[in-house]
Design a protein around this nucleic acid. Structure first.
Lengths: 106, 106
DNA sequence: AAAGAATATTCCTGTCAAGGAATATAAATT
DNA sequence: AATTTATATTCCTTGACAGGAATATTCTTT
């Protein structure tokens, strides 16, 4: 989890992930699109790869990077542990409203 | 988004958030439970508060911190933009399988 | 008012990660 | 083999940040 959140906590890496929503891109294209230097992008992509947020496919001298759903699904699963809580919170709100309504009728 | 991910990318802050799933806690309790120094915990809680991951309720000299769903829902909404993609990926897999089945029957 | 309980904040230090620049590596073309 | 295309990696610098220690602030009790 830490690795995933850390990877996404850097603005340029978040931008890369968002860019890859539209499909696989080569390193140079990512660099040009985001206005970053190529070595910079390579380093960021390495971090994202280690966090299972992107994966790479070699195509001649090109390296096409695409989203790796594994990392994103990890976040989704982590969030599952909190969804019950915010559902419970809504249930409690229903209780409070029902309570207030009952008190109003008394 | 950056602030949210950054807040969660520090191990102790992640632990704090996970601890608060069970309900609100005072600073000192969090510190004792996680084996951290109180000032440390205060600083982390401040970061989490700024990222809308926790909120605080003053109770005499105590400060009870509880989860703030806003930050977590922000992640959930961010993830929504990727769910379509991993659904699309599954659809494409269905296509590939259908294609292979058709070719097998030829 | 002083003392105690609980917490927030500041100052300082050391670590680490991001960017820049240079270079190494991989693959294709000439 | 030499050159070109595309990328990965290394070295260096610097700013950000976490923890420790000390202190300030908030609130209650004596």
């Amino acid at each position: 989890m830490i690795e995933t959140f850390t990877a996404l906590s850097e603005p340029n890496r978040l931008r890369i992930v968002e860019l890859l929503r539209d499909g696989p891109q080569a390193v140079g294209v990512i660099a040009d699109t985001l206005g970053l230097n190529q070595p910079q992008v390579s380093k960021h992509l390495n971090t994202l790869k280690k966090a299972h947020l992107v994966e790479v496919e070699a195509k001649a001298q090109q390296r096409l990077y695409r989203l790796d759903m594994q990392g994103l699904q990890l976040i989704d699963q982590w969030l599952d542990r909190y969804r019950r809580i915010w559902t419970d919170r809504l249930d409690q709100l229903d209780d409070v409203i029902a309570d207030m309504t009952r008190k109003q009728e008394e």
